[in-house]
Amino acid sequence: MPRLHKPKMPGLIGGLGITFKTMLRPAVTVQYPHEREAPVTRARGVIALKEENCTSCMLCARQCPDWCIYIEGHKEQRPPRREGGRPRSVNILDRFDIDYALCMYCGICVEVCPFDALFWTPEFEYSEFQIGRLLHDKVKLGDWMQTVPEPEPLEVGAETKGKK
């Protein structure tokens, strides 16, 4: 129930009591970098690329509000799957860069990718001294795949199972 604002003792004393009480309790500070708190599973830290799933469809680059994804690819011919068939053309990814200096961590690219090639990871310790090094290329984005967590189970009453 809401309390009426008529304190039992003069408010000045009550205020002193609260600060004194807080002084005696342990502080809530986490002494980074000596101690670290693990971020939650869904935290949007950095985006990882699974290269074998990517078909250079350019959906992510088009939907990005900041236009921070740079994709270049070319088509190559592959031998047909069966005898007498047409040669297949596949997209080979030449360049897939995400510029984290521009990225605003909205997640639209991860969401619109139809082939599940992009994943969120909660990894956040990738600050650089030079802003140019914030452009993560294909290799670095592939390395981030190691930090992608398992999708966590959902709450009671949810219909879909945990997706990315």
Binding site: T19, F20, T22, M23, R25, A27, V28, T29, Q31
Partner: peptide
């Protein structure tokens, strides 16, 4: 130190 602990933090460490 005292002000920090009153504010639930540690101060310089």
């Amino acid at each position: 130190k005292m002000m920090s602990h009153m504010q639930s933090r540690l101060g310089p460490m």
